[in-house]
């Protein structure tokens, strides 16, 4: 990144600070004649020359009229663009290799005026970066301000785990006559984390992680579907919804939840050390594959609502269960080795 670009980014950060939602205004809108605008002004100059040489007042009038249209359309472009209100939506979980769907709600509030015309959305990209790292490709999205469905999504391919380096979102519009380009670079909170790509494997739970001597013999192997259904129980608030026996509910027997009998209801640990990597991989790839396997196991165990802890050497997450636990485990996996 060149110095100019750095300065520019600094300036942008100051001018348009990160926010969850934006109502575009004079601080965030940039406006400049488009290429067509320049062509248009050139045309006006030509008409002026022709009108002067032929001493033709009508041609001059046309020229001045076009110049005035050019002036007035500056305001019209700005007013139209300033109608844009953008709010960041909730992103779904994203794993390495997936497309991140970044949703934005455009004027979701029906009371506000809708902007007209075609509006382009894309991630602002530093050109140099795109050249080097082709994999970080993002494609823009053009919507029609008069005919679109909320939310507007931007796709971004995520090749690496960890925090996404989300660049600013560029929005541009040429309405009404294409003479001006109105644009802005919006910065949304950068809290999206890409989890490692899950690699299906057997679930390997260690009974104790604190046992440093590495008793691998005590790990118990488990395969899918070993949790056997034992009985039904009336549903308690807080129980996972995927345990509800929907068939019973449909038959009109009320909310009941399935109970599973499993000898593994005791606390287990997932540990990086005890995860076997596939053979024939380099050091870095081996780590990634291990993390992927762990990721799979975390997802599986959480689905079954099991209590487990995560041991990644430096970071350890105490055994627990539930969505929040799952989230923190996945985050730990995603950010492993970042510091």
């Amino acid at each position: 990144m060149s110095i100019i670009q750095k300065q520019l980014n600094k300036w942008l950060d100051k001018r348009i600070p990160t926010a969850n939602q934006y109502q575009l205004n004079h601080k965030s809108i940039f406006i400049f004649p488009s290429k067509f605008g320049a062509l248009f002004i050139g045309l006006c100059g030509l008409l002026f020359l022709l009108g002067t040489n032929y001493q033709n007042n009508l041609m001059l009038l046309l020229c001045y009229f076009l110049v005035s249209i050019f002036l007035v359309s500056l305001l019209a472009s700005y007013i139209n663009f300033a109608k844009i209100h953008l709010q960041m939506g909730k992103t779904s979980e994203v794993f390495v290799g997936d497309n991140l769907h970044f949703p934005m709600w455009l004027n979701a509030d029906q009371k506000t005026l809708q902007p007209n015309g075609l509006i382009n959305f894309k991630f602002k990209s530093e050109k140099i970066k795109i050249n080097i790292d082709k994999s970080l490709s993002s494609n823009g999205n053009q919507i029609d301000g008069n005919n679109f469905t909320n939310p507007v999504t931007l796709n971004l391919l995520c090749p690496k785990r960890g925090k996404v380096n989300l660049s600013r979102v560029s929005v541009e519009c040429f309405y009404p006559l294409g003479l001006y380009r109105c644009w802005t670079h919006l910065s949304f909170p950068n809290n999206i984390i890409v989890f490692p790509k899950p690699i299906p494997c057997d679930i390997t739970l260690a009974e104790k992680s604190l046992n440093e001597s590495g008793e691998s013999g005590k790990t118990c192997q488990q395969s899918l579907g070993q949790d056997d259904f034992s009985h039904l129980k009336s549903y308690q608030l807080g129980e996972p919804l995927n345990h509800v026996a929907w068939k019973q509910l449909a038959k009109g027997r009320g909310m009941v939840s399935k109970q599973f009998a499993s000898e593994d209801s005791q606390i287990g640990w997932l540990s990086l050390k005890h995860t076997a990597a596939s053979v024939g991989l380099s050091q870095a790839e081996m780590l990634e594959s291990k993390l992927g396997k762990l990721c799979y196991q975390v997802a599986e165990l959480s689905r079954k609502n099991r209590v487990f802890g995560l041991d990644l050497g430096k970071t350890k997450i105490a055994p627990s269960s539930g969505m929040e636990h799952r989230q923190s485990c996945l985050t730990a996996l995603a950010t492993y080795g970042d510091d």
């Binding site: 009229f65 005035s68 249209i69």
Partner: peptide, 14 residues
Amino acid sequence: KLSLQALPISILLF
């Protein structure tokens, strides 16, 4: 609307 706005300006310029 744009043209009506532009009209007085263009006449002035002329």
